[in-house]
Design a protein around this nucleic acid. Sequence first.
DNA 1: GCCTGCAATTAGGCGCGCCTAATCGCTTAG
DNA 2: CTAAGCGATTAGGCGCGCCTAATTGCAGGC
Lengths: 242, 242
Amino acid sequence: MIGESNHHIIRQVMGSNRHVNTNTESVDNYLKAILVLSGPDERAVASTALAQRLGVAPASVTNMLQKLAAAAKPYVEYEKHRGVRLAPEGKRRALEILRHHRLIETFLYEILDYPIEEVHEEAERLEHFISERFEERIAAKLGHPKFDPHGHCIPAMDGKMPRQASIPLSSVDRDGRFVVDSVSDQNSALLKRLQASGVAPGAPVQVVRRSPGEFALRAGGSTRALILPRDLADAVRIRSGD
Amino acid sequence: MIGESNHHIIRQVMGSNRHVNTNTESVDNYLKAILVLSGPDERAVASTALAQRLGVAPASVTNMLQKLAAAAKPYVEYEKHRGVRLAPEGKRRALEILRHHRLIETFLYEILDYPIEEVHEEAERLEHFISERFEERIAAKLGHPKFDPHGHCIPAMDGKMPRQASIPLSSVDRDGRFVVDSVSDQNSALLKRLQASGVAPGAPVQVVRRSPGEFALRAGGSTRALILPRDLADAVRIRSGD
DNA sequence: GCCTGCAATTAGGCGCGCCTAATCGCTTAG
DNA sequence: CTAAGCGATTAGGCGCGCCTAATTGCAGGC
């Protein structure tokens, strides 16, 4: 739980209820998408980008944004044709969901021995439905972890998150030794391959070849180099060796 | 997972999709309610009873039952004015959800140290959203338990459940020694009281007084008797001492 | 055997999130 | 400075689960 109170899934029950219902899974997903797409410097996000990420028609996005902006406590700041930003309440909720997501991933990986490439999908569903108590209990069980199994930072209860100091493999400008900072959770097949090759958060790696289209790296004690096309190389973030 | 394949939450995406969408939380809840209300001998269930249990208008029940009966694989057998029974597919799903529910309760209690009176509410939400893998992993982690923390039997993967051999405290016909079989999860305040008095599944208890309106019992080493009005006494099921 | 009372059903409507089609309006190229 | 192009919005519609109000039909009392 982050910030204020968490009402969970309160579905509209009476047709006579005049209040707009903004506590659904769908809303959560819009807020999460805005959080991610607006990046660390919190740029305004375009409707199209949201539509594409959410797999939804642009008209649906406009519709939802108007609702989110018109709520008593607005979730977003939205001006027509200008894109959208998270309002404080929206940011609070988005970070809460992100915290849920990453805690659940950690939990599935550490306690339930999930293979890493399966944690994301399960967390994606459950993140909307766990209670504050569940959140608190798994955090305690895990020793209040700061990172999930992909190396992503878990937002603290006060919603603060340190800025990332790592760079994508695809933008590295020299060969040499690095440490894996994080791996993307978006492509589970790739994730499985990376795991199998020893490319996991904290692992030392050596970048052995770079070209416009491909990046090659060797992890820990691995003998064979792993060759990643540019688009997949985006999925690995590295930092200089500690 | 029980029996056949489990499609989880597949929401309707296209307006053009002619197939009826029967994979929602709401459907799960209707099926569960029918399972419980039809009792061990699987009597037909009246619309009104369902409506009351689900907190929904009778018209809504009729509506849903028609849909559940009309599906390609019908979930229920339903004839107008005759009540409803689970069809094989409906029973399969209902038992699957019940298995989820009770596994989750056990998990929350054993692994996450929830107070017993809080497990039901959380399980009630999560039971609809966990994957087959999650189900299997928590079952394994718990050593494939046969009973949840209330003493209720957890349906096996093949959907079989032994018939209950216990009776409600309210229908006991003699004073003397018994063993607590199970306690209801419906009233969390009562559950907390029972727990505090040592009335938990497997605990030996002594029935010390019976009257039309009240039942008194003393648990294990407890000094004070616990007095329960008839309606609350329904919540405790006992069997003769083992 | 009819009639009344109540359970159950039908009819019609609502908010939700989504869709498509039509329109609008920024922005940039000529 | 205008016009095209495309991103964004509006308009209208759908299925879902739910509601209320009106109607139907079963069953028990006389």
